[in-house]
Design a protein around this nucleic acid. Structure first.
Lengths: 220, 220
DNA sequence: AAGTCATATGACCTGCAAGTCACATTATAG
DNA sequence: CTATAATGTGACTTGCAGGTCATATGACTT
């Protein structure tokens, strides 16, 4: 975590540094990020950097914590529209709310996902707990869904977790990548077309790629 | 591509170098791979390395080409068991044959996927064509499947490609990671249990996670 | 004004990467 | 056996990384 010195800084200066760090991580990941470049781009000296942070991983951890705080804040007064949703409806709500959040903090989310998904896998177990937490929540959800008879009970729970994680990441990545190309990402995410794309993707997760008797219609 | 000097080398020496490179890429990816370490671990001198290859990317490209050659060789006399398979059956056969291949060259596949999936996304467009080729084949397959009424025609083709790529990578990664923990990866991949896991995963891709009237039974 | 403390600085250290090159060794040919 | 071409070598250069530290600046106290 950052040292007190950093927290004492005027907000503007803090933001400049954080912003430069986000850019650096988004472009180079954690391992290849350069403190020298961060320092240059935020207009502070090398020495100052090390008076603020332990090292670049410390900066990243701070980023993570900020993102988490923002997420809690964001979800604080957001609740599923109804109490009687099934697991898939709930998941859909969650994904969509997640996309709303992502489009509110696109650069930060991009930087963090790049590191977590790209290097987190191979980067010791620094982030293991981070993934573990999300996985646990999903696991609970799936167990419940099986108990409620919504998910095929013959599906191994851990496999199901893997599948939902994969889907969640894929959708998130897709929306973020496409969204970053737009001029107004939030507007784009909220557009009917994008929402329908998300619906369709989740529909496929739910019912599969194969054409069946009950068909998805984009209009509903 | 490697220089003639490398190709003139006795096979054994070539293999030592390639093997060291695979280990290096598998552990560090392309960007963070060190020619110094490769050179140490293969017992050649720095100078020799640069008489064999342009740089480490050159080595990796060679690895890619070897893998592709081996794959062509491997699939040369492997054909789907029947002519009247639908798209999903064909995909299933393809995935399973792919897993067979992976378990024949686990380290090489691991190194290559790590680089392609981990860095390829952000690494300029050096590998763009590589992905493009696979995507094109998938796209054809899906278009055909839609034409045959096997896949929901309302599904956007590019989305479907993304989904099948994602599934394919997820399964491949899962099997490779689990497989590397086993003492005999090929035996493990061929085991009934593993095959059933693959079947289940593909079944879910096909019919979705939601419990429906027609249920998958592991025994068939 | 003098003293004290937090903050800022950039030259400087070490370490390791990529890549080069003059020279040594070995193979091949005449 | 000698001359020539091919291959092998590792010390060296350059570049940039992470990280340190003596010194400077400036704000606040008394």
């Amino acid at each position: 975590m950052p040292k007190q010195t950093f927290l004492n800084l005027p907000e503007e200066k803090r933001n400049t540094i954080i912003s430069a760090s986000i850019d650096e991580f988004a472009q180079y990941g954690l391992e290849n990020a350069s403190t020298n470049r961060i320092v240059e781009n935020s207009g502070i000296s090398k020495g100052s950097f090390y008076q603020y942070f332990e090292d670049k991983q410390d900066v990243f951890m701070y980023l993570l914590s900020v993102l988490e705080r923002e997420k809690i804040e964001f979800f604080k007064d957001r609740h599923p529209p109804s109490m009687n949703m099934d697991t898939f409806q709930y998941f859909r709500w969650m994904i969509k709310a997640g996309m709303e959040f992502n489009s509110a903090y696109p650069r930060m989310v991009q930087a963090v996902s790049r590191v977590l998904l790209g290097e987190g896998m191979y980067y010791g177990k620094n982030f293991a707990e981070n993934r573990e937490k999300a996985a646990q929540a999903l696991k609970m959800m799936i167990k419940q869904a099986i108990a409620l008879g919504e998910v095929d009970p013959s599906v191994n729970v851990d496999l199901a977790v893997m599948i939902m994680e994969t889907w969640s990441n894929a959708i998130s990545n897709y929306i973020l990548n496409e969204g970053m190309k737009q001029k107004d990402i939030m507007k784009w995410v909220r557009s009917t077309k994008t929402q329908e794309t998300i619906d369709k993707l989740l529909y496929i997760m739910e019912y599969g790629l194969r054409k069946t008797e009950s068909e998805f219609t984009a209009s509903r």
